[in-house]
């Protein structure tokens, strides 16, 4: 009997240990304030931090020192890959008699269409165009999600009552606990020096 009532030690430590901290949030009232604060956070070397605002604030990217995304470059090359894929696909199926393994054995089938050469670029271009767009669009879509860490159904910030006003009229700076510069007391002090109207700790 005593064996069954005794909780396993692993479970106990999980339940008893204080919840891990996700980070600190500081609340600001105006775009101008968060702008200044963001510049300070940027200059003080934090890496894992973010600003949450109810609307896009012009110039905030710069104040935060956000680097250019490399998405456009990837998308460009994905588009080019689409162009090439379409060209290869069409020239293989319409203009070659090779047999290749693509899951099953497939053989190209040179097919004479209205007396055009088998390899006739003008006829290929519409498909090349479409696949360029398709590849570019799909990779934009997918990579945008991937880079942003989406889909994410839960975020610790959502539990914070104050943070709800981030979609209404307040501006927040979040410094995450995983930042190497993060020490709770020191970061708190630093945030205080930014003159926010409130600072809170967010639990993970």
């Amino acid at each position: 009997m005593s064996a069954t009532t005794k909780p396993s030690s692993a479970k106990a430590s999980q339940a008893d240990s204080p919840p891990r901290s996700y980070g600190l949030i500081a609340e600001f009232e105006t775009p101008a304030q968060i702008m200044k604060a963001a510049e300070r956070v940027r200059d003080s070397g934090y890496k894992w931090w973010d600003c949450c605002t109810p609307f896009p604030v012009h110039g905030l990217d710069k104040a935060m020192g956000i680097r250019q995304t490399i998405l456009p470059i990837i998308v460009f090359f994905m588009g080019m890959a689409g162009t090439c894929a379409a060209f290869v696909l069409q020239s293989f199926t319409n203009a070659s008699d090779w047999t290749v393994w693509a899951g099953v054995w497939v053989t190209g089938y040179p097919f004479l269409i209205s007396g055009k050469p088998f390899m006739s670029l003008p006829a290929f271009i519409p498909v090349m165009f479409e696949l360029t767009i398709l590849f570019a669009a799909l990779s934009t879509f997918g990579l945008m999600f991937a880079f942003n860490g989406l889909p994410q159904l839960y975020h610790p910030l959502f539990r914070n009552k104050r943070f709800r006003r981030a979609t209404d009229d307040r501006f927040f700076i979040v410094i995450e606990a995983r930042d190497p510069h993060y020490f709770k007391a020191r970061t708190w002090e630093f945030l205080e020096s930014l003159d926010p109207i409130a600072i809170e700790e967010v639990e993970d």
Partner: peptide, 12 residues
């Protein structure tokens, strides 16, 4: 330009 070209090229 390409659309114009391709239609004419195709119809021949």
């Amino acid at each position: 330009g390409f659309s114009q070209y391709m239609l004419i090229w195709y119809a021949n």
